[in-house]
Amino acid sequence: MTATAPILEVDDVSKNFEASRGLLGMPLLSRKREVVRAVSEVSLSLGQSEVLALVGESGCGKSTLGRVIAGLIRPTSGELRFAGISHTVLSAAERRDWARNVQMIFQNPYASLNARQTIREIIEEPLRVHRIVPKSDIAARADELLDQVGLDPSFGKRQPHQLSGGQCQRVGIARALTVVPRVLVCDEPVSALDVSIQAQVLNLFADLREELTIAYLFISHDLGVVERLSDRVAVMYLGRIVETATRDDLFSSPKHPYTQTLLDAVPKIGRSRAHSVKVSGERPSPLDPPSGCHFHPRCPHATDRCRVEIPHLKAVGSNQFAACHLYE
């Protein structure tokens, strides 16, 4: 395997949820089962030690894609490959292998820790379960991990409710690092934190990337965070990737009208501050997505073709791809 081969590939992955909107929410009384197309035909690849940001409005399927990649839910169709090896149906043993390669950082730092465990128990448990280090080294390794995420080992005795949000998120990061993963799926890991704390935790992500051979899929709706941390950006709209590009290309010459609207909504000077992804116009529902290009009802350039035909990702630059009929 060469250094440029991707560590993780997502190949044509879709995830549908069945939502029954029956009488009083009772499944038995529902007339028809409706399908939420949370993720549709997504293909992505993540290079070794690369930081790929995934941006899009809330509800567009970012978390669902992240959870599929982390092995928490099975895709409806499509395939995941780690270092070239395909994983479609995961047995218990394969699940364990996958878990040691791909870990996840969650959005809510408090809720992602078991309130009944001490910090030390939280960190030592994966070391023990996955037999990462010999039994006698477990305590020392836990101290090392705490230190690596910027927490004093004395924090081990505490419980999650005695920690701040930022400290909890550091514990979450240390827990994910126990198994020495090659890929970290970070689902809006700083969006629940105070702005002043966000910067510190982002610095930790940047530092870890220098110290370890690790790639991030960094999910965010904050373009300021994305611009600061990422190498490459994928833009998602209603379950589909509409544009991927290197960070510089994306911010200097966005090609997809949706990406353009996103960046226009953010004043250039203040972009490094927190700026949520927001676009005017009503956001269509994944229960009933618009025909053709999902973005056409809000697109200033929409043509008749956009209303009927779904565009696919095509090269629009040396390292830039957009799913838009304008570029043909």
Partner: peptide
């Protein structure tokens, strides 16, 4: 989810 992510 975190526990399941660690394949417990």
């Amino acid at each position: 989810e975190a526990a399941q992510c660690l394949a417990y």
